[in-house]
Amino acid sequence: MLTLYGHPLSSYTQKVLIALHELGTDFEFRHIDLGDESDRALMRSVEPMGRMPALREGDLVLSQSSLMIEWLDRHHSGPQRLLDPDPDASLPARQWDRFLDFQVMQMMQQIVDARIFMAEGAEERVAPFARGKLDLAYAALDRQLDGRDWIAGRFGLADCAAFPALFYAGAIHPFADHPRLSAYFKRLVARPPVQRVIEGARPYYGWFPFKDGIAARFL
C-alpha cells in the first residue's frame, strides 16, 4: 500500500497530494502531528531529517517532494502524466519546479521563520530581502506564462509545486499586479485536485502566521 506521511497544511505535502490526486493514485494519508512525540519519532524513522512529507511503498521510502512526484509519475500514472517521458523534454518542468521551490517557497519561508522562530526584530531585517526576491520571481513567472496556460506548457510537476508556493507566498506578498500570474493562479485554484487540497487544509489555516492574507481569499 502506498502511504504518504504529512500534514494538510504543509506546503510540500500539498505539492505531493496534488500529484497523487491528478494521477488518480490510490494511497493512504498518514496525518502527522508534530506536536505528538510518537509522530515525531515516526517521521524521524522514515525521513532523514524527520521532515514532512515522506512516501512509502513496501520497503521503499522516499523524501523530497519533487523526487516523490517523479517516482509516482513513472510507477503510478495512467493516461495522465506529470512529466514528459523524454528526459530532455522534461527539463523545463524540472527547472521551473526547482525555481518555485527555491525562489518562491523558500523566500516565503524565510519571512515565516523570522516571525516564528527568530529574535525580535528579525522579520524587519529578513523580510525586505525576501520580498525583493519574490518580486523578481513573480515577474519571471509572469513572463514565462505569456501564451501558456501552464508553466511548462501542460499541467505537470511545476504546477504541483506552484500552488502551495504561490498560495503561501501570495498571502504574505501579493502578486496581483502581475496579470498573467494572477490568472494562472485562478486556473490552479479551479482545478479539482487543488480544490481537494484546499478543503483538506482549511481547518488549519488559522495556524499560519499570516492567516489574514489567506482569509482575504479563502476563508
Rank of each mutant, 00 (worst) to 15 (best):
A183V: 03
A139D: 09
L219G: 15
S90Q: 12
F163I: 01
Y12S: 12
R81M: 00
E28T: 14
G58L: 02
F27K: 11
F185G: 00
H21C: 06
S66N: 10
E47V: 05
V194Q: 03
P193A: 06
A54C: 08
P87M: 05
V46P: 02
E70I: 01
L82H: 00
G24H: 05
S63F: 15
L91T: 09
L82F: 00
D59Q: 12
E37T: 15
Y138R: 07
T13R: 07
S77L: 00
L82I: 00
A119C: 03
Y138W: 10
E70P: 01
F175M: 10
I18P: 02
W71C: 03
A114N: 07
Y168N: 04
A89L: 09
D142S: 13
P8N: 12
W207C: 05
P174T: 08
M43Y: 04
S38M: 08
P203D: 11
P53E: 10
A137T: 07
A215E: 14
K133M: 14
R115K: 15
P53W: 09
W207H: 14
L157P: 08
R30S: 10
F167I: 03
Q103L: 11
G200R: 15
P79H: 07
L166D: 12
K186A: 15
A152E: 12
M68V: 03
